[in-house]
Design a protein around this nucleic acid. Structure first.
Length: 568
RNA sequence: CGGGGUAUAGCGCAGCCUGGUAGCGCAACUGCUUUGGGAGCAGUGGGUCGGGAGUUCGAAUCUCUCUACCCCGACCA
């Protein structure tokens, strides 16, 4: 490709509305342009990268035995009524109506569509297991789209759905997808981590997420510093930090803590460690309010809390007035003694003794509180967020925290959808049996942003070899005037093109500095600078976008040299 | 959906307070010079000042209203 035949529109200035580096660089390099909130046009340049991502995914999915297909993006509402997921997805569903007032959703995911397809198409256990996938545009009406294509409303996703007769077979394909995802991300040259995850609105039993590691990631992931354990913080098991409950040594007493409402304030006022305190949070339950108690220095995991059968979903904290009505004080003085509602405590809290909590009396706290003697809890369960320094749940090492961008999520759905939609096959005894199902998503457009987030410097993008829009850039100095430069460049261009190298020749009439910094921004991995100055000495210059130091290569050997670099 | 903000040329912004011929930088286009690190000079084109209504002799500017977008929060594969 020659730049004169291509469409390159780069910008020197960072766009005002782009917050994170990948968004800024994608706009500056001219890969994407915004059409509306969470809606982006992919330019020919950006689309090249998107296609590379797609192609790697496609090749590896095919290699795993999955079958590519294509489903409609527009889905009849009735389909969603069958599984009752309209409420689960809520406002994220983009609804529309046709001329006959029939209602549709623009597909945010395709469990219903594939299950509908499979229940008619797959009737015998002999057709199993089978794994279908597609690469397609989805729409999720995010409350707040942001960060460019990182969290857009319309986006491209690879979604795969597998069907099985048994849970064992599902498990097998699930593991196969885990290794396939690992291969895909490794081929893209990304640093990533597979972690245990919460399955959210998709549902099912087990699920794992694949995170590309980057400080700008929206998710926190916890991992053991010396074991295999890794989990999204939402899912990360938080073990009890106190092995056995000590016998009470302190007397129960009430102290005045005027105006001290936060754990921090009270701990400072009483000159005690926050670890000696407990935090009592009142939330709406299925049947009246429920108290959730975590240690003073811990955070409630809202995801874990929302999963408790006693707690209403979505999680909803009681309003100031409701609290006052129930316990007769403000939020800052709630405690566990004589609290008139079920009390669910975190595992660590259950083993605490001589602790401090609110007195359920405005401006007062209780010290020397002990379970059994002074208060009772209803149940103990893991409801706090794990934090750095906690022992790893698998007993090996301690937990560390990192930020990640979720680019893939695999689920073992079991029979959730097949039961709801009556998707059955006949087994070898001729009996109808509900299908076991797995689903495997990968954010194609998000991966492009994630790759940049992880691979850039002050001058622009540094594409991993597998994702670069072009492998080689030929950068002639004074191409328009110098016969020698033009001839050398054209010959090299022809040679590389002939052997199938993805090469771009910058034949624009621009000054050298402009050209060089443009290609730094674009991040083309291999760059060859061709100018009279070096040609007169019989060589051209080569630089790799990552290392940036210029290497003199004998003119006659550059094609071979490049081939060698490309195969590394 | 709650809170905060913005809307003027392709991009970044000034002008608004105090109403009176719509400007600057970058980008684009033409010409000349320059050609190994985002060039210089000269010139050109491009705007119903987000939409609507009102006040006024006169509105980018004041008032009302609608819309879009951005940020924070809750939500989230």
């Amino acid at each position: 490709m020659r730049t004169s035949q291509f469409h390159l529109v780069t910008r020197k200035e960072t766009p005002q509305d782009a917050e994170i580096i990948s968004h800024q660089l994608m706009i500056r390099a001219g890969m994407i342009r915004k059409l509306g909130a969470g809606l982006y046009t992919w330019s020919p340049l950006g689309y090249r990268v998107l296609r590379k991502v797609e192609q790697i995914i496609r090749e590896e999915m095919n290699a795993s035995g999955a079958l590519e297909m294509l489903m409609p993006a527009v889905q009849p509402k009735e389909l969603w009524q069958e599984t009752g997921r309209i409420e689960d997805f809520g406002g994220q569903l983009l609804a529309m109506t046709d001329r006959a007032e029939r209602e549709y959703f623009f597909g945010p995911t395709h469990e219903e569509v594939i299950t509908e397809f499979v229940r008619d198409e797959v009737t015998s256990y002999k057709q199993l297991p089978i794994n279908f996938y597609q690469i397609q545009t989805k729409f999720r009406d995010e409350i707040r789209p942001r960060f460019g294509v990182m969290r857009s409303r319309e986006f491209i996703m690879k979604d795969a759905y597998s069907f099985h007769l048994s849970a064992e077979s599902l498990e097998e394909t699930y593991r196969l997808m885990e290794t396939t995802y690992t291969t895909i991300l490794a081929r893209m040259g990304l640093h990533f981590r597979c972690v245990l995850a919460d399955s959210g609105a998709i549902g099912g039993s087990g699920s794992q997420e694949f995170h590309v590691l980057a400080d700008s990631g929206e998710d926190a992931i916890m991992y053991s510093d010396s074991g295999e354990y890794a989990a999204n913080i939402e899912k990360c098991e938080a073990v009890s930090l106190i092995a056995d409950r000590a016998v009470p040594t302190a007397e129960l007493s009430e102290v005045a803590t005027p105006g001290k409402k936060t754990i921090e304030d009270v701990a400072e006022f009483l000159k005690i460690d926050q670890k000696q305190m407990v935090k009592t949070l009142l939330v709406a339950g299925i049947d009246g309010p429920v108290a959730l108690v975590v240690r003073g220095d811990h955070h409630l995991s809202e995801v874990k809390a929302a999963h408790l059968p006693e707690v209403a979903t979505p999680l909803c904290f009681l309003e100031e007035q409701e609290v006052r009505k129930l316990v007769g004080c403000d939020v800052g003085s709630i405690g566990v003694k004589d609290l008139n509602c079920p009390i669910i405590v975190d595992l660590t809290v259950a083993n605490m003794s001589d602790f401090v909590c609110g007195a359920n009396k405005e401006g007062h706290h209780l010290t020397g509180v002990n379970w059994q003697r002074d208060a009772e809890f209803t149940q103990q369960v893991d409801i706090r967020e794990a934090q750095e320094g906690d022992p790893s749940p698998d007993g090996k090492g301690t937990l560390k925290q990192a930020r990640g961008i979720e680019v893939g999520h695999i689920f073992q759905l079991g029979d959730k959808y097949s039961k709801a939609m009556n998707a059955v096959v006949l087994n070898d005894k001729g009996q109808a049996q509900a299908l076991q199902m797995g689903c495997y998503g990968m954010g194609v457009s998000r991966l492009v942003a994630a790759a940049i987030e992880q691979n850039h410097d002050d001058n622009g993008i540094i594409w991993p070899a597998a994702l670069a829009p072009f492998q080689v850039a030929l950068l002639p100095m004074n191409y328009q005037k110098s016969v020698q430069v033009k001839k050398t460049t054209d010959e090299l261009y022809q040679k590389l093109t002939d052997i199938g190298v993805d090469v771009i020749l910058d034949d624009r009439k621009v000054r050298p500095g402009f050209m060089l910094s443009d290609f730094e921004l674009l991040g083309i991995p291999h760059q060859v600078i061709i100018g009279d100055r070096s040609l007169d000495e019989g060589h051209v210059e080569y630089r790799h976008r990552k290392k940036m130091d210029k290497q003199k290569i004998e003119h006659a050997k550059i094609a071979d040299f490049l081939q060698q670099q490309l195969s590394l």
